[in-house]
Design a protein around this nucleic acid. Sequence first.
DNA 1: TACCTTTATTTGTCAGACAAATAAGAATAA
DNA 2: TTATTCTTATTTGTCTGACAAATAAAGGTA
Lengths: 237, 237
Amino acid sequence: MEHLRATIQPLTLVDQVEDKLLNYLKESDISVGDSIPNEIELAATIGVARSVLREALSRLKMLGIIETRPRRGMIMTAPSVFNGMKRIIDPRILDEQTVFEMLHFRITLEIGMCSDLFLNLTEEDLCELDDIIKHSVLYENNEYDPYSEYNFHAKLYEIAGNKIVSEFQEMVYPLMTFVNKKFKDLIEPINIELEKEGKIVTHKELFSYLKERDEDGFTKALKNHFLSYKRLMRSRT
Amino acid sequence: MEHLRATIQPLTLVDQVEDKLLNYLKESDISVGDSIPNEIELAATIGVARSVLREALSRLKMLGIIETRPRRGMIMTAPSVFNGMKRIIDPRILDEQTVFEMLHFRITLEIGMCSDLFLNLTEEDLCELDDIIKHSVLYENNEYDPYSEYNFHAKLYEIAGNKIVSEFQEMVYPLMTFVNKKFKDLIEPINIELEKEGKIVTHKELFSYLKERDEDGFTKALKNHFLSYKRLMRSRT
DNA sequence: TACCTTTATTTGTCAGACAAATAAGAATAA
DNA sequence: TTATTCTTATTTGTCTGACAAATAAAGGTA
């Protein structure tokens, strides 16, 4: 019962005002760049104290829906979709299951990206990837040095060409690093197992599929490349 | 020049306090369920007025990192990753390019999801999908009635089994509906074109691949199923 | 020991005040 | 008239103080 009570968060005035402002921005003709009535006017119109209004406005500012130019008023702006999410993607805030689901999310995305990859791939892209691989160091435990590990995948996202997807990967990446460290002892035996099965896929191999424009081969190899994470996740649920 | 000035948002006290609070929550030992010092104490510690502190706290409440039980204090909570994003995923707020990139994002995800789909697929799932298709209506322009269109894809996500991914699809779905309506006149000729090329893929066909457990066939068919959106997007950039 | 009363605590809300910097308008000089 | 300087009004950012309301804790009573 106590647990139920906790989930029923009473709607404060600030919550209501936030909702009203959002609806106002969505339903009125105000578009990006247009100015918004000043705080005193808004507070009077809605019928709340300025402090309450400001708490609601503060939320919208964080999301990037509005911007204030001090002493000149507020305007509506085009938000980046991840403004809110950025602040909470952190293993110290999210619970373990959520972290794993975010990893899974990212892997799913990267696999789904393959067709776009081959659609856009240029010779210059291949050169850049080759460079990244040449400068990389592959440790004994089949892990790359952090920089090239990141750069290689980031480049794949860049080629696929969706900025928001790239931004997502950038945001989620630290979770992978975290999991790598925290579950090192679980990942290593999995990698040994995979090695025996011949399912360890290096960046070099992925690159050769790209070079030969073998989409199916690449996709399958990429799936194997993520196998250690998938097995780890399976073992933790 | 003026344009540059606008992008340099000065860091207000509220922004700084928000940052400090986030770091505090991340770096201290406080975990989900634990209580947080009260407002007066926090304000005094940080050295700002309670109003400023409350604006920062208000943001964290919106993200779901903290919760307040009126007159009993604040506790740290486990946020849903989309609390912030939910509020801005709306075609009336996002610009056209962002809307298209979000659609592309979703399609990428659904394609990447195929292997999980076949990993988890049960006979009961097949029955449910069959039911959805049987109750659906396919119009002349190769579109389904909105309910079964949604239910079919939502069920695929459910089978794939990642809750966050499902939540994402649910959130982004309205953007598809919006694009369908707004670009009706552009989509129809594309569909006619696709019909001639024999690349129109119905839910029924997708279902038959599922039933036969043909992952490659299904994946290719799903890619074709989204071709009209991909061509539309290509024509708008 | 069980029940009732009182008190302290803490968030939610309101009101008012002032600084600072800009933009607009007014005044002045060329 | 034109260009420059000065003045004023506007608006956000920040601070202070106040009170209601409801809970939890403490104290008192049967």
